[in-house]
Design a protein around this nucleic acid. Sequence first.
DNA 1: ATCTATGCCTGGTGGC
DNA 2: TGCCACCAGGCATAGA
Length: 272
Amino acid sequence: MPELAEVRTVKKVLKNQLVGKKITDIIYRYDGIIKSDKEEFKNILIGKKITEVDNFGKWLYIKLGSYTILSHLRMEGKYYIKPSDEEYEKHEHIIFKLDNNMDLRYKDTRKFGVMMLVKTKDIDKVKEIEKLGIEPDDSKLTNTYIYDKIHDSNKPIKELLLDQSIINGLGNIYVDEVLFASKIMPTRLGNTITLEECERIKNEGSRIIKKATECGGTTIRSYTSSLGVEGTYQNYLLVHTKEKEKCMMCGNTIKKIKVGGRGTYICDKCQK
DNA sequence: ATCTATGCCTGGTGGC
DNA sequence: TGCCACCAGGCATAGA
């Protein structure tokens, strides 16, 4: 599933390929992805030129001057840029026709992803964006910020790290990796995590996200960063997807458990 | 305010 | 081999 590192990779590719291109038409093959007014989405965007592509956490911003498409890929959303005359594939739901005979196509097998049109000047006031916390490798993220957000919570630390309003951009893969690197059991409640452990979460989170971003993200199962870009961070994963394998640090067998309903990989010797 | 359940979805899996 | 119930999983929202 695309998390921060993957979304940044998509952003980079889209930015290179799309800035300066004009949308000449929009075709809905399944319009449930569009959460703002569907007619307005078309009417306003057709004829506009893409001016910038950005992201904040897992949200992609496709900017067209005074309007911006907010796009969240959720589980399986992907963008492809293909020649306009290529046949549509199954699950290609939203087709943006561009003025260079290419399409920007949004494909999403499970249809969990969302798109909405907002005014660029109002992005930070959009409720989904407004509530987002600090990205893991942002220098504004401090041990005391994390500690303040979690120290009176009786939720498992894993759930707290998946909460986008605290740290913005971590998903299931990187939370497992950050907690392993920080030597913290994902089931530990927020109110048991020390300031020193918050420091480790901050440091490991920053390090892992930076490295994963450099790698272009993680490609596991059918997930890629889309656009044919295959990330390579899966080669650095130490626990996620490693059930029944030996822990790289201690040789113990990696286990898969459930935390907050999510598949969670741990080494119960390294993580306390 | 805070917690739990449910819905959104389809492809893959496991049981028979 | 074929059928089918079940599940993953980020996030919003309705209900308790």
